Amino acid sequence: MRKMKLQNIRLAQFKNYPQANFSFVDGINCFLGRNGIGKTNLLDAIYYLAFTKSAFNAIDKDNILHEEAFFSIKANFEVEDKNIEMLCAVRLGEKKVVRWGGKEYEKLSEHIGKLPLVMIVPQDTDIVREASEMRRKFFDNLLCQLDQEYLKLLVNYNHLLKQRNALLKSFLEKNRFSADQLAPYDELMIPLAMKISDERNKLMENFLPIFQEFYKDLSDNQEEVAINYDTRVTKSFQSDFKGQHQKDFRQGRTTMGIHKDDYVFLSEGKPVKKFGSQGQQKSFVIALKLAQFELLKSTKNQKPLLLLDDIFDKLDDKRIAYLLKMMADGRFGQIFLTDARPERSKEYLKKIDTEKKFFELDLNRAY
C-alpha cells in the first residue's frame, strides 16, 4: 500500500485564520473547540489541498479573511518517503496559483486525484434528500479522483453545455431557431455524453457491491438496498438528443444529456428519498462515503485522507461505534476530525490503539 501523510499545514488569511501552523500525526488528529472557532475551516483547508477549491465556498475570494487581499495554504506531504511541499494561493484580481513540489500546474485539473480524500460532514444527508445534482456531484467527485480522463470529459462537456445553453437562450430571446448553429455543439456533445454515461455505468458495477456490504453491516443485515443509475443516454441517444431541438428552443436550455442523470437510492425497492427514515438516510450516506473510501483505496493502492466533521454530535451511538471499530481495526489511514466537546472525543478515542493528537483551538493564540 502506497503511503501518504499530511505532515503539516500553514495558513495565511484563510477564512478566519490570520496565521496558523499545525503539525500532524499519522493516526487521528482532532480539532476541538467551541462552535464558530474554525474547526470546519481547518478541515476545508485540507480539502482545498486535494481539490484546489473549498468544499463550501466555490468562489475563491469568499475564502479570504475579511478585508484582506489574499490567502495561502502551504503544506508538506510525505509520499513514499519523499517530502513534497504544496502551495495554494489566491490573490484578488490574479490567477490562482497551485504548486506541487515547487512546480506550478498549468491546469488545476492535473492535480485532482493526486491526494485522494473522503470527507463526511453533517449536510451529507443532502445527497439523499435534495435534487439530482447532489447525487451526480458525489459520484462525479469519486470518478474524477479515480480517473483524470473522466475529469477531462466532464470539463469539456460542461463547457459545451454552457455555450449551447447561451445559444439557445439567444434563440428564445430573438424567437428565431437555427438547427445549423446548434449542429456543431450536438456533434461534440453527443459522443462526450455517451462516454461519460458509459463510465458512470462502469463505476456502479464496482461501487454497488461495496456499498451494499457496508450498508448491511450498518443495518444489521435488515434491509435490501440498491442504487439505480437513471439516464436517458441509451443506444438511441443521438437521434433522441437531436429530437429535443424544439423543446430546447422553447425552454431556452439543453433539456437532455448527462447533466440530467440521477441516481435512485432504494431500500426494499422503495425510494429512500421519499420513504426512508432519518436513520436509514444516515446509514445510506455513511455507506456511500465508506464505499467511496474503499474504492479509492483499492484503485489508488493508497488510503485516502479521511475528514470527519462533527460526527460525534450528528450520528447516533450505533453509527459512531461502527466508525470507531473501523478506526480501531486500522481500516483507515490518516484521520482529521472535529468536535465541540473535547472530553467526548477523548473518551471515544482512548480505546483506539493508534497515535492521536488533540488541537484545542483558540483564535487568541498562535499555532
Rank of each mutant, 00 (worst) to 15 (best):
R365C: 02
T52A: 12
A75D: 12
G243E: 09
E343S: 13
E133P: 03
E67A: 14
L6D: 01
W100E: 10
F359R: 06
K152N: 11
V90S: 06
R200G: 06
S132E: 15
S277M: 09
S239G: 08
K74Q: 10
L208G: 00
F70I: 03
L117E: 06
A166K: 15
K357H: 07
G252M: 02
G113T: 03
R2F: 02
F77S: 00
D262L: 10
Q212F: 01
I320L: 11
F31G: 09
K274F: 09
F171R: 04
K152Q: 04
F56P: 06
C144W: 08
D147L: 04
K297Y: 02
Q163L: 08
L117V: 14
L143H: 06
K137V: 01
D248C: 07
M119D: 03
K260T: 14
K162V: 09
N76I: 08
K195C: 01
L308C: 07
E80G: 01
Y47L: 04
F207M: 06
Q163T: 04
L188F: 01
P304N: 04
F139E: 04
L288K: 00
E173I: 15
G243T: 11
V79F: 02
E199K: 03
Q292I: 04
P342M: 09
P271V: 13
K137M: 02
A89N: 06
I311P: 03
V118P: 05
H259I: 11
K242C: 07
N201C: 12
F359E: 05
H245V: 09
D313K: 00
A183H: 12
I112W: 09
E104I: 03
S267K: 10
L49H: 11
T338K: 13
E80H: 00
R91I: 03
N156G: 05
Y229E: 14
S236Q: 11
H245S: 15
A12N: 12
I59D: 04
G102N: 03
E294G: 03
L168P: 08
T125V: 15
T231Q: 10
D339T: 05
I196Q: 10
N158M: 10
I311E: 05
V118M: 04
V155P: 01
K5M: 11
D339C: 02
K300E: 11
K216R: 14
F284R: 00
G27A: 00
F312A: 12
I9F: 09
F275K: 02
M119R: 08
M326Q: 13
T299M: 00
Y157V: 01
L115Q: 07
F237Q: 03
L218N: 00
L172T: 02
F22S: 02
D313A: 12
K282N: 09
A58V: 14
L188C: 02
I28E: 03
D26K: 11
E268F: 03
Q251N: 13
